[in-house]
Nucleic acid binder design. Structure first.
Lengths: 207, 207
DNA sequence: ACCTGAACACCGTTCAAGT
DNA sequence: ACCTGAACACCGTTCAAGT
């Protein structure tokens, strides 16, 4: 007399994300996830084959609402910008999952659909062959780095405590820049960096 | 009758890096590092207070020869490019340490000196205030992302195996692009992305 | 089928003890 | 001072057993 499955992958992922939001990445263990779901530890293995798969579930769940459709108005640069900002918005709801998103970026369905959308835009803009690869990777590389940096602590954030103790004589510009960075909102920092990448893309665009 | 200290931080770091080079990041444990050094596990705690400090030692050791001095010939863009390539060269000798380098980027002395050098170049180019923060962070963001991506597996690399199994109909451009990416050397991919960022920097440069 | 609990081979780290 | 070994509180995961 088989019992009905008490959970679905969505609820498993949501529970894992709740733990990460609350206790950080280190707080997520097979045991804590099972407890959060009201299961014994081993029952969790009914739903995922191992921790790696649980992390993939998390990565896909966080980006489940990521819109992969290219905007239909605006220049191709504006479209790419919109696509990039969409990622940051979704990630912003669960920022501590960032390392998992990066680690699973090649297998995450929502992200793959988003990449396909970006490629549509790049292709319409005339990119092809290796130039298109470079453009995509440059954009994604910046996105990964910027989101990770924002999460690990921006120049103006916690890490600056260490920097405040550095000998001023050896790092005059670093000290000065860190001071300015403290007052620069993360969102503007992200937008500014994205703008650099987008202008760079414009510069190497075909035609 | 105190015994002489049998090791210095440099040898500890070198041993840890040797393990990472050989067995990957997961292979590095307090136990494996101690064994590599011919010590009992707990003797390692004479040299580092905990695992976190061991990882910092690794991060600093890998970049110990990173030249922080701005090149004196060439345009400011060429100088920045040289600085960026220097990082990739040093990292290239121990690529699997990348996550540790990123995690410790705010405390790693060699990296802080390198950043100071980059800031000298940016300042000479006329960058100041928030524009200088954005320029620095955009560059470092790309560097982090690109090196991490290169390490976790480029588009043309292992992860593409997963992609090869995707339904073609849903991801036509992704499939096509992955095929091209497979034949693009990592070095060219990095250089191409760096070029995008540098051109973007040019576009937002003062004067 | 679905769930449980004991157990195994790991971790990082504390502590008391040896030279 | 420097090093050691046992022990503790964790991990992920295997396995045999319950309903």
């Amino acid at each position: 007399m088989p019992r009905p499955r008490s959970l679905d992958p969505d609820r498993v992922a949501a529970a894992a994300v709740a733990i990460i939001d609350r206790d950080g990445l280190a707080g997520l263990t097979m045991r804590s996830a099972a407890t959060e779901l009201g299961l014994s530890t081993m029952a969790l293995y009914r739903y995922v084959t191992d921790r790696d798969e649980l992390e993939l579930l998390v990565a896909e769940w966080v980006l489940r609402d990521l819109d992969p459709t290219p905007p239909d108005a605006g220049s191709w640069i504006e479209k790419i910008k919109t696509m990039a900002i969409r990622v940051r918005v979704e990630v912003g709801a669960h920022p501590r999952t960032v390392p998992l998103l990066i680690g699973n970026r090649q297998r995450s369905r929502p992200l793959l659909h988003w990449i396909e959308g970006v490629l549509v835009i790049l292709t319409e803009a005339g990119f092809a062959g290796t130039a298109r690869v470079v453009a995509l990777r440059g954009l994604v590389g910046y996105l990964n780095g910027a989101l990770l940096q924002e999460q690990l602590g921006p120049l103006g954030g916690a890490g600056t405590l260490t920097m405040a103790t550095l000998p001023v004589a050896d790092f005059p510009l670093l000290r000065e820049t860190a001071g300015v960075a403290r007052d620069l909102p993360a969102e503007e920092e992200f937008a500014g960096g994205l703008d650099i990448v987008l202008r760079g893309l414009t510069a190497i665009a075909p035609e």
